[in-house]
Simulated scan of single mutants.
Amino acid sequence: MIEPLKQQKNYKESIQFIDLKSQLERIRPEIDAAIKRVLDHGVFIMGPEVYELEKELASFCGVKHAISCANGTDALGLGLMAQNVGPGDAIFLPSFTFAATAEVVAWVGATPIFIDSLENTYNMDPQSLEQGIHRAKELGLNPVGIIPVDLFGQPADYDVIQSIAEEHRLWIMADGAQSFGASYRGRKVGNIGHISTTSFFPAKPLGCYGDGGAIFTNDDNLAQIMKSLRVHGQGSDKYDNIRIGMNGRLDTIQAAILLEKLKVFPDELLARQRTANHYNEALKEIVQVPYVLDGATSAWAQYTIRLPKHKDRAKLMAELKEVNIPTMVYYVKPLHQQTAYKHYPTATGGALPVCEALAEKVMSLPMSGYVDKRSQEYINSQISELLK
Rank of each mutant, 00 (worst) to 15 (best):
R187C: 11
F200A: 10
A214S: 11
I215D: 00
T217D: 07
G207E: 04
A203R: 09
M173F: 06
G176I: 03
I172E: 08
V231M: 14
T198N: 01
I192F: 11
C208Y: 06
K227G: 00
G207M: 09
I195K: 08
I195G: 01
D219N: 15
A203V: 15
D220Y: 10
R185L: 07
G186L: 10
I225P: 00
K204W: 00
Y209C: 14
M226W: 04
R187T: 05
D211W: 14
Y209K: 11
G213H: 12
A203M: 12
F201Y: 15
L222K: 04
I192Q: 12
I172Y: 02
F200E: 00
G186C: 05
S179F: 08
D219W: 05
Q224D: 14
R230P: 05
V231S: 11
N221L: 08
G181L: 06
G207V: 04
S228W: 02
G210N: 15
S183F: 05
Y209G: 07
K227C: 11
P205Q: 07
T197D: 07
G193N: 00
M226T: 07
Y184D: 11
G186S: 10
Q178C: 04
S228Y: 02
F216Y: 14
G181I: 06
G210V: 10
S179W: 06
Y184L: 14
K227W: 03
T198V: 02
D219I: 10
S196T: 09
R185Y: 06
R185H: 08
D211L: 15
F180M: 10
I225W: 01
S183E: 14
K188E: 03
G186K: 10
G193P: 03
G210M: 11
R230M: 07
N221A: 05
S183G: 14
H194T: 14
I215E: 01
G213Y: 08
C208L: 03
G176F: 07
A214H: 03
N191D: 14
L206M: 07
L222G: 07
N221P: 00
G207R: 08
A223F: 08
C208N: 12
G193D: 01
S199I: 06
K188S: 13
G186A: 12
C208I: 13
P205V: 05
N221S: 12
L206W: 02
I215Y: 01
R230V: 01
G186D: 09
K227L: 05
S179P: 04
I192C: 13
G176Q: 10
K204P: 00
Y209E: 15
L206C: 03
G207D: 09
K204L: 09
L170F: 03
N191K: 08
K188N: 15
F216C: 06
